[in-house]
Simulated scan of single mutants.
Amino acid sequence: MKREIRFRAWDDLHNKMYPVSDIEWDADGRMWVTTDDGKNGIELIDEEAHLMQYAGLEDKNGREIYENDILKVISEDGESYVATVKWFGDEGYPAFDLAGIPAAWCYESNALATIFESGVETCEVIGNIFENPELLEGKQ
């Protein structure tokens, strides 16, 4: 399976999400992000920037799913929960999966993969952790 590698970046300084077409690092460790329109070179320094990778998946509405997106997962019977898309590579598990799944929902393996492979549940991007942290209130 071939997957397109794409990123977006959250800028803490301007509180804005940028689609990314190019990423470069200079000798001082500063990261330069160029937006998709190709006109605006925006310097984001590591402490201000949060890069998020495209998971290669789309929600039920065709919206691309990125790391740090907040998903609403809905079962066939209408029950639902909210969880965050996370890259678990830093924890020895090199895959995108969901963080914050309620204990009542049990998956034998990767929940995100199970949802998309089984087709029993659907998911919808309802926000992300930077622009919509209120969606996670009481969950952490």
Rank of each mutant, 00 (worst) to 15 (best):
D77C: 13
D12Y: 05
D46T: 10
F116P: 05
P133I: 03
D46R: 11
Y66D: 00
G41Y: 09
V73A: 15
A113W: 04
D59G: 01
N110S: 07
W25P: 05
N15C: 10
K2N: 08
P94G: 08
E64A: 13
V120R: 11
T35S: 14
M17Y: 03
A9Q: 00
L71C: 02
R30E: 03
F130K: 01
E4S: 14
V125Y: 11
E117N: 14
G38N: 15
E121M: 14
C123Q: 04
V73H: 02
G56N: 07
G29E: 01
F7C: 08
R8Y: 00
V82W: 04
E131L: 12
E4N: 13
D11A: 09
L13Q: 13
N15Q: 14
A55K: 03
N110P: 11
H50Q: 09
A104G: 11
Y107K: 04
L13C: 05
L136A: 11
Y54E: 01
D77L: 03
K72Q: 09
F88R: 10
F96Q: 02
F130I: 01
E76I: 02
P102T: 02
G138L: 04
R30S: 06
Y54S: 03
S118E: 15
D90M: 12
Q140D: 15
Y54V: 00
D28F: 06
I23S: 01
L98G: 01
N128V: 06
V82L: 12
A103K: 15
V85R: 00
E124G: 00
E58R: 11
F7A: 10
A111C: 07
D22H: 12
K60S: 15
G38A: 07
E121K: 12
T35I: 15
G38T: 02
I23V: 11
E4C: 09
I74D: 12
P94W: 10
E58I: 11
D69K: 00
V120C: 09
L71M: 00
D12I: 04
N15F: 05
A27C: 04
D59H: 00
I65K: 03
I129K: 02
C106L: 12
